[in-house]
Amino acid sequence: MTDNRRAFIKKSVALGGYSLIATGGLLGSSDANAEWLPDTSILQQTLKRLFKAQDIIASDKIAIQIPKTAENGAAVPITVTSSLNNVESIAILVEKNPIPLAAKFELSPDLEPFVSTRLKLAESSVVMVIVETGEGFYSAGEKVIVTVGGCEI
């Protein structure tokens, strides 16, 4: 009788311990997390939607002229030029804005890779430019510090 009871307790403790380890291991693994944790930022989602699964390579052949600090985020002038060949499109994104994509221009071969416009910046953010050429996608970024946001203006 006592032996029986002891054996039962031993077994149940061992089993309980085992299940504890098993669940711990499951929760710790990244596979379980990926299902419910949003692992990609809005910028990443936008990039995925715009350029599918294409590789985007950082390039120094894209020049962004933008003020380092902007007093007013409602109108920040930006000029993008590039020395890349066969430019097909130029996209401008503001990383911290609720909807990052500002504009995407498809340029014909008759045009120089040159775009100038004015952007709204909600807060200090990286302004990203993605240039699509016949060979692939290239990106460049520039940080802008905004003292007054552009969203409420």
Binding site: A74, A75, V76, T79, V94, N97, I99, P100, L101, A102, A103, K104, F105, E106, L107, L111, E112, F114, V115, S116, T117, R118, L119, K120, G150
Partner: peptide, 15 residues
């Protein structure tokens, strides 16, 4: 061009 609301009021473009 596909333009979003991130472009300033009274937009300016140059090409």
């Amino acid at each position: 061009g596909n333009i979003g609301a991130n472009v300033s009021k009274d937009p300016y473009f140059a090409f």
